[in-house]
């Protein structure tokens, strides 16, 4: 079959999802958990790590089995593979990171139906070898992690007024840094801890990224025209 789309390099497969093709900020995929698990930075880091593990492992297995899975059963097969890794990650989190497991709740199971995971399986892993698929999974997972961490950072600092560590990852000492909220003063905006606040932060960040991307594109165009002249 003549494939018109050029296959990305390994470097591109890993780096593009970090910013240029960020699954959350640019492609606006996986917004539901991104809004739900971003009330604290620790929670977002935890979700990001688990998500990356599921995405990378699913991509690897789907890529390895791509020649054995018939076209007409690929979607149910992918879902079973993804659900398996989600279950494995869930069991591991419940055993070794119980606080993270409780705080993520149903959103951990919902990774199974996250459109980024199935999307990367369909768009990349089923057509590419194992190593690029692994890098694509890691890149997208990392891009998603960075995105939800940015949202969480805004929401925790501005919404709760503090930055806390050690509550979800109990193996590190508990520290709460009072940034906008102290014993006698409070400049936090609790709205940002609510779902509404999550939408606002996501919208603002997407807008900022669009501004930066457009500005850079414009600059590049001007440079190109200058060179031509």
């Amino acid at each position: 079959m003549d494939n018109a789309i050029a296959k990305p390099s390994k470097k591109e497969a890993f780096l593009a999802p970090l910013l240029k093709a960020n699954p959350l900020f640019v492609l606006v995929l996986g917004t539901c958990p991104a809004l739900a698990v971003t009330t604290t930075l620790e929670q977002a880091i935890g979700m990001g790590i688990l998500f990356t593990v599921v995405l990378a492992l699913s991509n690897v297995i789907i890529s390895a089995l791509r020649k054995f899975i018939p076209e007409y059963v690929r979607i149910p097969s992918y879902i079973v593979i993804i659900a398996t890794f989600v279950t494995v990650v869930k069991l591991l989190a419940e055993a070794f990171l119980p606080e993270l497991y409780s705080s993520l709740g149903v959103f951990l199971s919902l990774i199974t139906v996250n459109c980024i995971v199935l999307g990367r399986a369909e768009a990349f892993a089923q057509d590419n070898p194992v190593l690029p698929s692994l890098l694509d999974g890691l890149g997208n997972g990392l891009g998603y992690t960075i995105a939800i961490c940015i949202i969480a950072l805004f929401r925790e600092i501005l919404g709760a007024g503090t930055l806390s560590f050690g509550k979800t990852f109990t193996f590190i000492p508990q520290v709460t840094i009072p940034l906008l909220k102290g014993d006698t003063w409070d400049y936090s905006m609790p709205l940002l801890q609510q779902p509404t606040g999550a939408f606002l932060v996501l919208g603002i960040v997407i807008a900022l990224i669009a501004v930066i991307v457009n500005f850079r594109a414009k600059q590049a165009k001007i440079k190109k025209e200058e060179v031509k002249e």
Partner: peptide, 30 residues
């Protein structure tokens, strides 16, 4: 279809079973 899905489900079951066996003592302890 049956063989493919059957093989994948068997593999998935084995992986989940092993993970569950490893993690269940920790989950029970918590």
């Amino acid at each position: 279809t049956t063989l493919t899905l059957g093989a994948i489900v068997l593999g998935a079951g084995a992986i989940i079973g092993v993970t569950s066996a490893i993690t269940s003592p920790f989950v029970y302890a918590h």
